[in-house]
Design a protein around this nucleic acid. Sequence first.
DNA 1: ACCACTGTATGGTCTGACCATACCGAACGA
DNA 2: TCGTTCGGTATGGTCAGACCATACAGTGGT
Lengths: 229, 229
Amino acid sequence: MTVKKTRTFEDVLAQIERRIIDDGLTVGDRLPAERQLAEQLGVGRSSVREALRVLETLGVLSSQVGRGPDAGAILTSRPDTALTDLLRLHLGLATLELREVIETRLMLERWSAARAAATRADTSALVDALAGMEAAASAEEFVEHDTAFHCAIADASGNRLIAAIMRSLRDSMRRYAVEAVERLGDPSLLHADHHHILTAIRSGDPDEATRAVADHLSHAYPALFGDTP
Amino acid sequence: MTVKKTRTFEDVLAQIERRIIDDGLTVGDRLPAERQLAEQLGVGRSSVREALRVLETLGVLSSQVGRGPDAGAILTSRPDTALTDLLRLHLGLATLELREVIETRLMLERWSAARAAATRADTSALVDALAGMEAAASAEEFVEHDTAFHCAIADASGNRLIAAIMRSLRDSMRRYAVEAVERLGDPSLLHADHHHILTAIRSGDPDEATRAVADHLSHAYPALFGDTP
DNA sequence: ACCACTGTATGGTCTGACCATACCGAACGA
DNA sequence: TCGTTCGGTATGGTCAGACCATACAGTGGT
């Protein structure tokens, strides 16, 4: 006699996850149709739909209507969009403070910059973003390229998890970043910081890159200056 | 004429999020009942349910059946369970490699230990976990207290976002941690490492704490030794 | 004052139906 | 033979209604 404690959709979720692992499904593979899954598992279609919705929320699959090879539930991998939603909501609930997010970002960025410098990573994306920033006409546009710049550093670190976290942090704090840029007014200090970071990475000096990043963040958010280790 | 491109549940999601922000809802507050929400928003109950499922997946609310003040959809804040699911699934899809997760964990832990040392944080939870580890009879039990130890370090850092990420990383790698402990056989080296970390934190020496954490990780996962900056 | 019973609001689930979409394929025409 | 058109169909998206299990809120009796 098994006690009924898990909801049906959780059961469906577990079975789908098991199928992913056992069958070695990977990005691009298709799941059976909703009605088919429901019949196979002996549950209603609504339970299947709720399970699929969860997977979609976690950035693991995406649903397409219509017919053909591209239709249906396809396994994907978008950890950053899922992380962005998660952070945004928890920031909205005031269970996380901006301080914590920025501290985390500083930690990620110090690590990424040092790693990028140590591995002599490709810096062309950084150069592009820098040019975009210098040509930006508004704070919003500036922040857009600024985000690209900092995400490019994370990408250059070669760690996709850290890059995904960085991207989510930036997305969920976009509003505050725009405020910070507007508060500063003159972006020349930020430009100098960015160049400093770029040259440190290109010259392969991890310690200098770390220092440059820390300086930059303390300029952008002076209220949260450097008692970080 | 607005084009119908967003699905109904996404619309519901946006309205609920808006309500959270506008009404200043916070943890512990209740959302209207599913049927009420459906009627208020002019949509079907299934769409409301899918939206609530998404919020539940993101760790923002929890649903209770029955009646009374504790029943219904209650706002919560469980970023770590959501993050755990996310990481576990993406690890299963092989879009993230174990190396990336462990690198991230090392980064988090170096930072947390240094911060805990610098702020002279309370270390009683660390002591408890240490005792549990030394009394552990099996690898599983050992890992359980080991997880508690490392999460306590993250908690002691005073940054809840970093603590949540740490907890999720540990949970999603539990299987590999057990393997690592079994591979080592003799846990005395790990015990020494843990004591080293604890003393460094208690003596308020951030650099020593950082070093101790890095040493520990390189012992536990020798295959991924220290080319980390 | 206590206890047992009933009412009811809640989420959980299933069924069946209908819609919009987009591919598939047969029928048709050049 | 080739291209086009048009209906068929599988897909997800949505809704309505029904029923169940749960757990509290009264209500009534003792």
